[in-house]
Computed example of a mutant assay.
Amino acid sequence: MEAYFVYVTTKDGDEARAIAKAVVEERLAACANILGGIQSVYRWEGKLCEDSEVALVLKTSHPRKAQLIDRVKQLHSYEVPCILCLPIADGNPGFIRWIEGQTD
């Protein structure tokens, strides 16, 4: 069993919901958590930036990870979106099986 958390930042709640609905409907992710407003500080094109964003956590299986990354990039408004995959080292085996079943 190999599952992942996929962390994504989006420009707002509407974009987060649109991405979440698409990837769950397409079975690329088992579920999505929209974490609400976050403040992001970063450097872009040589300038220090500060923006409000919305974080999104997707849960997926190893076989769907690459497809999920590609689909989020297609749906996302940013030129270089934050998409980070974090392996789930341990947890409820039943939930991890559910992630795998939902992304088959």
Rank of each mutant, 00 (worst) to 15 (best):
A55L: 08
W44K: 13
Q74G: 07
V41D: 14
I34L: 08
L28Q: 06
C82G: 11
C82T: 04
V57F: 02
C85L: 13
A55T: 06
E45I: 05
P87S: 11
V6I: 08
R64V: 04
G13Y: 01
I38Y: 08
W44F: 15
R71Y: 02
V8P: 01
L86A: 12
G94D: 12
A22V: 04
D14V: 10
I19K: 00
M1W: 10
P93T: 15
A20R: 07
F95K: 12
D90L: 09
L56Y: 09
T103V: 14
E53Y: 01
P93N: 15
G94C: 09
I19L: 01
S52Q: 13
E15H: 00
K11R: 14
G36V: 12
L28Y: 03
S52Y: 14
Y42E: 02
A30I: 10
G37K: 12
F5W: 14
V8Y: 00
E79F: 00
A3K: 01
C82R: 06
N33I: 05
E2I: 14
R43W: 09
Y42C: 10
D104F: 11
K65C: 05
P81R: 03
L35H: 10
I19G: 00
Q39F: 15
L48F: 08
D90E: 08
R71W: 04
S61W: 02
A3D: 04
L56H: 14
A22R: 03
I34T: 04
P63I: 06
R97N: 07
C82L: 13
E100F: 05
E2G: 10
S52N: 08
K11Y: 10
Y42Q: 05
P87C: 10
R64H: 06
C31A: 12
Y4S: 11
A89V: 11
Q102H: 10
P81L: 06
K59D: 04
W44L: 10
P81G: 08
V80R: 05
K65R: 12
K59G: 03
T9Y: 00
Y78Q: 01
A55Y: 03
L86G: 08
L35E: 15
V24M: 13
K73I: 05
E25P: 11
F5M: 15
P87Y: 12
L84G: 02
T9C: 03
L84V: 06
V6R: 03
L75S: 01
E2N: 09
A22E: 05
A20T: 11
V23L: 10
W98P: 06
T60N: 02
L58Y: 03
